[in-house]
Design a protein around this nucleic acid. Structure first.
Length: 201
DNA sequence: CCCTGATTCGC
DNA sequence: GCGAATCAGG
């Protein structure tokens, strides 16, 4: 697989969106995450930092970079999209942790899709909400349903069912990065910081 | 063990 | 330039 302009573009976009190298590699296909990382470095966008300050830590070199010549400003830094903060208030739904509706959960689909928009459906940032719940609900179907004794360091410890009955087990899916839950349950358990603004009662 | 990015170095 | 192997964390 060659790094076509198209693929590089996808790489840049996803990397800019904070996607991991493996995710990007999976998306592109035909390349490993190493390839992606290597390319990222070669493109010089390894640092997701905005600016890079060189406090002259260790670089005795560079005696006199000829300050005379006017540098053509090699830093366009387009910064196309700062990604608007996703603050969708409107009618906040205080998701109750009560019974999880089983069965088909219709995901609210908005945005009629403009014609000619190649890639609108990009949830990107993990915003919990109805979708996350639906995901959890779906995950429960594929859950490994392990028992308490089967829990390990990397099995999702999300409880499912009623502990008072036999129908009780743990999700058991693979956790990620030391977290106690699988990805789906993490998104529900650890909410970023949604402004749980209390509404008037 | 799973994952992450960073770096090296033969190709 | 490329990316597998390796390194260094979480």
């Amino acid at each position: 697989m060659a790094w076509t302009d198209d693929r590089v573009e996808t790489l840049k976009r996803m990397w800019g969106e904070g996607a991991s190298a493996s995710q990007i590699a999976k998306e592109l296909g035909g390349v490993t995450r190493n390839a992606v990382i290597g390319k990222v470095h070669r493109l010089g966008l390894s640092n997701r930092n905005a600016d890079e300050a060189k406090p002259a830590s260790q670089t005795p070199a560079k005696p006199a970079p000829a300050p005379k010549t006017a540098k053509p400003d090699p830093t366009p830094a387009p910064k196309p999209e700062p990604v608007a903060a996703v603050e969708e208030d409107d009618d906040d739904e205080p998701r109750t942790m009560a019974a999880v509706p089983q069965g088909t959960n219709v995901t609210p689909l908005r945005k009629p899709l403009m014609a000619g928009q190649p890639l609108p459906p990009q949830p990107s940032a993990n915003e919990i909400s109805p979708e996350a719940l639906a995901k959890v609900n779906a995950v429960e179907k594929t859950a490994k349903k392990i028992s308490l004794m089967e829990l390990t360091e990397r099995t999702c410890k999300w409880p499912i069912g009623d502990p008072a009955t036999e129908k009780f087990w743990f999700c058991g899916l693979q956790t990620q990065a030391g977290k106690p839950y699988c990805e789906a349950h993490v998104s529900v358990a650890f909410q970023p910081m949604s402004s749980r603004r209390d509404r008037k009662r």
